[in-house]
Design a protein around this nucleic acid. Structure first.
Lengths: 222, 222
DNA sequence: CGATTATCTTGGATCGGGTCTATCTATAGA
DNA sequence: TCTATAGATAGACCCGATCCAAGATAATCG
């Protein structure tokens, strides 16, 4: 790698570090790109040269998340179902959670900060949704090709959306626990437990979940 | 209703009509709010007084869609499952689709335009995702309260996300058909058919969908 | 009916994200 | 060392969105 590329990498890292520090300090929406550029001693245009949008300063490798997930499902062993591979991936790659469980204070702080900043920023939440949707589409395409169904097969899309829905529910669960600061060292274990019941719902069908459950419970809104 | 309120309603309609006309003509992103204001003979501040964001000019009553969906599930007859009520609502309220099926040229044109404009605009698609996510949350809250589960119950969230996933898949299906201009008078019937298999996947469980299907089909990406 | 008050509209200033262009700097390659 | 070129930079500019002070108008009350 030449000097030029090394400097580029360095500048990129400088920008992302600076942005992260400011975001962690004052939240995403209250920090301007101009400010980040000034703090990092670069031009605003340079920031946008490296990162197409402000949100990418916070999620520098967001596409990788989705790509790894799809890859995990695609490259599973023969015999394993897509659902099982998806579950394995979800529980296996909770790197930050595992470190928190192991008592890593740095990881705990990061987990808290990330979730606090995202929760407080509509723009970041929108970005998150966008990535999740792209992920669902990629997963649907994979499932479609695996089953040999024609493009746009509704079964694959429904299945992909349902799987991604589990991810979304687990992320929400983690976020609410983190924001409430509720026994975070136990969080990883609890997430595994939540995931188990989440996937059980999908595997056994939604029919079981709600069949004939309205006799003993009142309707909330009328 | 006093004169003041009548004029307000009139102005609101004028703005929304003007905006719709321009959007239909040149797409969402290529029309500026300033231009809409000028064309409607009002101040730009007035536009933002009526509509909090530009996207709301295109989706004037977006929350109602989600609210009606949740309401349909909440107010179902005892004995009907949430899934059944959701399906009934999805298929029952395809007003535009039904009119297209009946040969309504105006409805057909509107269906085409709406989908063309949305598909071409990242901002509108983001707005759509936001509404869908809000809808999933509301549905999850309803299901949670119905089953008497504690707030944040993962089963309800997974189920809600899966149901909304069907909606999303059907919208995608409609959109692709509309963009491809593929036998649109048959579309409503085809959507009903797609919905049937979509819900079948959820009812019987995702396990059935993908179990042991990898022996005879190659993996797409490795 | 006339005066007051509440509400809405308006133009204009301002801000922040994002793009573009022209210019400048410094590295890569000969 | 000289040159071609990738990348950084300042600055103007566009657009969505907010804010404010001032103007217009409908509702209310004496």
């Amino acid at each position: 790698m030449g000097l030029r590329e090394r400097k580029k990498e360095q500048t990129r890292q400088l920008i992302v570090d600076t942005a992260w520090r400011l975001f962690a300090d004052r939240g995403f929406d209250d920090v301007t790109v101009t400010e980040i550029a000034r703090e990092a001693q670069v031009a605003k245009a340079t920031v946008f040269n490296y990162f197409p949008a402000k949100e990418d300063l916070f999620f520098p490798r967001l596409e990788d998340f989705g790509a790894r997930m799809v890859e995990a499902v695609a490259s599973r062993d023969d015999g394993e179902t897509a659902l099982a591979a998806f579950r394995r991936h979800l529980l296996g790659t909770g790197g930050l959670l595992d470190r928190v469980e192991a008592g890593d204070a740095e990881a705990l702080h990061r987990l808290r900060t990330v979730n606090r900043v995202i929760a407080a920023s509509p723009a970041l939440r929108a970005r998150e949704r966008e990535a999740i949707a792209a992920c669902a589409d990629a997963l649907a395409a994979l499932l479609t090709s695996e089953t040999g169904a024609p493009a746009g097969d509704i079964g694959a899309q429904v299945a992909a959306n349902a799987l991604i829905g589990v991810h979304r529910a687990l992320v929400d669960y983690v976020r609410s626990r983190v924001l409430a600061d509720d026994r975070l060292t136990r969080l990883a274990a609890d997430v595994r437990e939540q995931a188990t019941s989440a996937f059980a719902v999908l595997e056994h069908g939604l029919g079981d979940q709600f069949r004939a459950q309205r006799d003993d419970q009142p309707v909330i809104s009328r």
